[in-house]
Write a protein that binds this DNA or RNA. Structure first.
Length: 642
RNA sequence: GCCGGCGUAGCUCAGUUGGCAGAGCAGCUGAUUCGUAAUCAGCAGGUCCUCGGUUCAAGUCCGAGCGCCGGCUCCA
């Protein structure tokens, strides 16, 4: 029998008979590894333990500690789910069941939608199947036999998948759990060796989905679940979901009096007094950041003639998302974005190369007629404002301008204490506009800017917009969720469409490049993220109410009122709780409203002209003169996230 | 827009086989003047989402619409 050479990660190698399985290789290394082995990476391809080694290969055994373990567990659990569903609901058709970032799902064609009781029963069945420690087995079936098998079972979707995925292959890979009767699925694998490995999973929810994600296709019922390598990790994850629910900005937004909504204005927020304060604080913060950075602020019209949208191309491509208005026989539309308005302003006078870069910033409201089903709290709305800006630059200024933008992004997210990562999106493989040389030039400048700003980044090949490359930023909130907010996009197309030009040093007309950019994204969405990030306990500089004065008894009201006035005069947002309630009650209310500082005033404070400071997070901090508190507060506000 | 679930007081939620609309918190009034997370008592508060239907009788059953929630899709 011929031998093959297996090279292990530590560089050592060993010879085994051809056809030896990974499981046997692991067993040959150590009994402990044999027990821990789940799958293997063979020449960087992930395979089952049963995989027979037919030629020399680099082999790395995948255990629960390997990075590949999590998706392996999740996908295997998806199969376990499908096995449970096919057992409990004979006749269902299975779709696909991939691992996702958060868990897994599996799509089924069923006569009726799943209800929560079904999920309980399915999960119970999964646990049973896991307890029986049934083997996953890979079987290579002749393609025609596999197609005939699934066709006969009434699974045309599987037949379709086999036809699409395995064209020209003589055999196809199918997996069973225990045997064909228990469960069989067309799948490339790999899986854990047996169901007993799966100990930490939970079904979460059901939803509608469509075959291949296309609403024209067969409707299916999707079951979502999550799975982890260990039960502790699962528990952590479920705790995190609970935490996310507690932080939900829709709940906190109401409890903290930030915003409300009404059925007569779906997808639009009513900003209440405190929410408006927060909104304006953010808006003015961006102004404070952008003015010194060379931006000017504009206010352009909210409603435009359709001629503008025909010029920009939105009429052709975006009309179904625009709110249309008719006036005196003219077709108008609410603006869904500021860009075209800024182009008109740019074109409204002769521009010199000496004027560039020109940076227009605008915060006026935008309207997008989003489908009713996608509206969610503040994260997806129909009316919103952006910290939007367009920088008009020469070809040669791209790199420097982008570098400035990167530093701006860095500075802003630091002020919020939000970690972030950058992603460079390069030229799409097809359907891009413009010359390759132009793209190469632009991408090179973006890269240089990233290097010079010392900003780590990932490269997303082909992820650029069709009109130019871009850099997107993901922020990570306090409970580990990622949100895309900032974006920097180069645009060579709109300057053409709007015939934008500047006069160069050579006294001829040139085409500027436009950089579209936003840092917060939309104020609405960013506020939602901040609410959830801080769990409603905003840092002092953002808190709608920064301090509340709490008199102990009515005889302290005059002094308390004077304290509040001095706080207000010092530019602090302060309230006075003059109700006839006990101090414990007022403190409780202020804590629930997450007010950063409570200033208690009673006989002692009136006597000594002081305030007793209580912080939201640190409790009673003791008494001090009001001036001392004001100075500390100003310092804390200036430090922002510290 | 599509699939499913939900819609009862300002908020959170009960409401049985169809038979007079309920609680806690919040609010109002009164008492209490109190030292670091809820003082006591009383009162008031309803188009049971809307429209239509079944029924002697509808919060409850049926239909349509609207909104919200979870997804799909899309997206900042």
């Amino acid at each position: 029998m011929s031998q093959v050479t297996v090279t292990l990660p530590d560089g050592s190698s060993r010879a085994v008979p051809a056809g030896t399985s990974i499981a046997d290789v692991a067993a040959g290394i150590s009994p402990r590894l044999a027990k821990a082995a789940l799958a293997a990476s063979v020449d960087d391809r992930l395979v089952d333990l049963s995989y027979p080694l037919e030629r020399d290969a680099r082999v790395r055994i995948v255990t629960a500690e390997s990075p590949e373990a999590l998706p392996l567990f999740r996908h295997s659990t998806a199969h376990l789910l499908a096995a449970a569903v096919t057992t409990l609901f004979p006749g269902v058709q299975c779709g696909i069941g991939p691992a996702t970032d958060e868990g897994f799902f599996y799509d089924f064609v069923v006569p009726r939608p799943f209800v929560p009781e079904d999920l309980d029963a399915i999960e119970k069945k999964m646990k049973e199947l896991a307890a029986q420690n049934l083997p996953y087995e890979r079987q290579m079936w002749p393609r025609a036999e596999a197609e005939a098998f699934f066709a006969e079972r009434g699974e045309p979707l599987k037949v379709q998948l086999i036809e699409e995925k395995t064209a020209g292959q003589p055999v196809v890979s199918c997996y069973t759990i225990k045997d064909r009767e228990t469960f069989v699925d067309f799948c490339t694998g790999p899986h854990v060796p047996s169901t007993g490995k799966l100990k930490a999973f939970k079904l979460l929810t059901t939803s509608n989905a469509y075959w291949k994600g296309d609403a024209h296709n067969q409707p299916m019922q999707r079951i979502y679940g999550t799975a982890f390598v260990s039960e502790a990790e699962l528990k952590d994850h479920l705790t995190r979901l609970e935490e996310a629910k507690k932080r939900d900005h829709r709940k906190l937004g109401r409890e903290l009096g930030l915003f409300t909504v009404h059925p007569w204005a779906p997808g639009a927020a009513f900003w209440l007094a405190k929410g408006t304060t927060l909104y304006n604080t953010l808006a003015n913060y961006m102004r404070d950041v952008l003015f010194p950075a060379g931006y000017v602020e504009l206010k352009t019209p909210l409603v435009f003639n359709k001629a503008l949208w025909e010029t920009s191309g939105h009429w052709q491509h975006y009309r179904q998302n625009m709110f249309l208005i008719e006036s005196e026989g003219e077709q108008m539309s609410m603006k869904p974005m500021n860009c075209p308005g800024h182009f008109l302003v740019f074109a409204s006078e002769v521009r010199s190369y000496r004027d560039l870069p020109i940076r227009f910033h605008e915060q006026t409201p935008l309207h997008r007629n989003e489908a009713s089903g996608v509206l969610t709290g503040l994260t997806r709305v129909r009316q919103f404002s952006q910290d939007d800006a367009h920088c008009f630059v020469t070809q040669d200024q791209i790199g420097e301008e982008v570098e400035r933008l990167l530093r701006l992004v860095q500075r802003v997210y630091n002020d919020f204490g939000l970690p972030f990562t950058a992603k460079l999106g390069t030229r799409p493989a097809t359907d891009f506009l413009g010359e390759k040389a132009t793209w190469d030039h632009a991408e090179a400048q973006l890269l240089q800017a990233l290097e010079r700003a010392g900003m780590p980044y990932a490269r997303n090949e082909g992820d650029g917009a069709f009109y130019g490359p871009k850099i997107d930023f993901d922020i990570t909130d306090a409970i580990g969720r990622k949100w895309q907010c900032a974006t920097i996009q180069l645009d060579y197309q709109m300057p053409e469409r709007f015939d934008l030009k500047y006069v160069g040093a050579d006294n001829t007309e040139h085409r500027p490049v436009v950089i579209h950019r936003a840092i917060l994204g939309s104020f609405e969405r960013f506020i939602a993220i901040l609410i959830e990030h801080y769990a409603g306990a905003f840092p002092l500089w953002l808190a709608p109410v920064q301090a509340t004065v709490l008199p102990i008894a009515d005889r302290h009201l005059d002094y308390a009122g004077a304290v509040r006035e001095q706080l207000a005069a010092a530019g602090l947002r302060a309230e006075l709780d003059g109700r006839q309630e006990k101090i414990g009650y007022k403190i409780r209310q202020a804590q629930l409203q997450k007010v950063p500082y409570m200033l208690v005033v009673g006989d002692r404070e009136v006597e000594e002209r002081q305030v007793a400071v209580r912080s939201r997070s640190g409790g009673d901090l003791g008494s001090r003169p009001l001036d001392a508190f004001i100075a500390q507060a100003h310092d804390e506000i200036a430090r922002k996230a510290q």
